[in-house]
């Protein structure tokens, strides 16, 4: 049991930190521009595919730098020539634009790279077990993922709080008009933040690609979870996104690891449910079975009872 808890904890942290790399960019974009970027996870997928192609020619490590930069530039271009153009039609149109973009990027990816799973591998140097605990290996690559995510977290924190650019960004988040009046080029800041957010998602894709397999559906399976994090954490709150990422990451791994079901509770209470009625599936419901819906349950509950999210201060 201890072994299960220990490894679930580690796996949960790996997933949570990975999700945070996506969520941090999304929450910055959302709080500045008020746009929930549906295509954010698509940039994550693009990161993985770019890095895969780069690794085919020059290996894994250059891809770690080049792929996120490419994704970031692409993101900035899309903001400049796509999103900013659509902005004139209003918020709903912007949301629908990013929704369509997500659809389009998936099609483009399967057009360029094909539909099959790509054999994007972790670098040879990281293909060993970092430590063995109760006979179970912990791959070094997972540790590397944790390391990169934490490094990015710290870098992000430092940039936002210790640099001039970070202060301008913070100002633009809370008072965009006032910041513009002070002579800062707010549209340029928007474009930059959008690009950096996409680059972060791309970097997450680069390191997640080998671990979670690289295929055209990889954006969809992660896409809506990232929204859940941003909304649950609270709009515009990086700290909230961090906490929510870890909660969701841990929740998903632990829900799969722990085999408790409704029938266990019922048997403790000495109730024997009928096994024929329309609700029969409810009585056999187990925790691993409901694991995929827990994040959405959390989302709906948070939106009903605390629309500002855990740490947020405003609704939209």
């Amino acid at each position: 049991m201890f072994e299960l808890i220990f490894f679930s904890l580690l796996n949960g942290i790996v997933t949570g930190l990975l999700l945070f790399m996506l969520a941090s960019g999304l929450t910055l974009i959302f709080s500045m521009m008020g746009v929930l970027n549906f295509a954010h996870a698509s940039f994550y997928m693009l990161g993985a595919y770019f890095a895969y192609t780069i690794s085919e020619y020059v290996g894994f490590w250059p891809g770690l730098i080049i792929a996120p930069v490419l994704v970031g530039v692409l993101g900035a271009l899309i903001e400049r020539y796509g999103l900013r153009y659509v902005h004139r039609w209003g918020h709903v149109a912007e949301l629908i634009f990013t929704f369509g973009l997500a659809f389009l990027i998936e099609e483009v990816v399967s057009f360029i790279w094909g539909k099959e799973t790509k054999a994007y591998q972790e670098p040879e140097i990281l293909q060993f077990a970092l430590f063995t605990f109760f006979g179970q290996d912990f791959p070094a690559y997972k540790a590397f993922m944790i390391f990169i995510s934490i490094a990015i977290c710290i870098a992000l924190l430092l940039v936002l709080t210790r640099t001039r650019i970070g202060l301008i960004i913070q100002a633009a988040i809370s008072h965009p008009n006032m910041t513009a009046m002070l002579g800062h080029n707010v549209p340029f800041v928007f474009m930059g933040v959008f690009g950096v957010g996409c680059a972060l998602a791309g970097l997450a894709g680069v390191i997640a690609g080998p671990a979670l397999t690289t295929f055209p559906g990889m954006a969809v399976v992660l896409g809506s979870i990232v929204f859940v994090i941003v909304v649950v954490g609270g709009l515009g709150s990086l700290g909230g996104a961090f906490v929510a990422s870890l909660i969701i990451g841990l929740m998903q791994t632990f829900a799969i690891s722990l085999d408790y079901s409704v029938s266990d509770i019922l048997s403790v209470l000495n109730i024997t449910p009928d096994s024929e009625g329309a609700l029969r599936d409810l009585w056999t419901l187990s925790l691993p079975q409901v694991a995929p819906i827990l994040p959405y349950l959390l989302l709906v509950l948070i939106l009903i009872f605390r629309p500002t999210g855990l740490f947020g201060k405003r609704e939209s």
Binding site: L36, S224, V228, L282, I293
Partner: peptide, 25 residues
């Protein structure tokens, strides 16, 4: 606005996932 859109997304995913769990219906 956005809150409505997000709730609709969450409820949608929730019920879609439930449909795979509640096999009887």
């Amino acid at each position: 606005g956005t809150v409505f859109a997000m709730i609709s997304l969450g409820v949608g995913e929730l019920i879609a996932a439930c449909s795979l769990i509640f096999v009887a219906f």
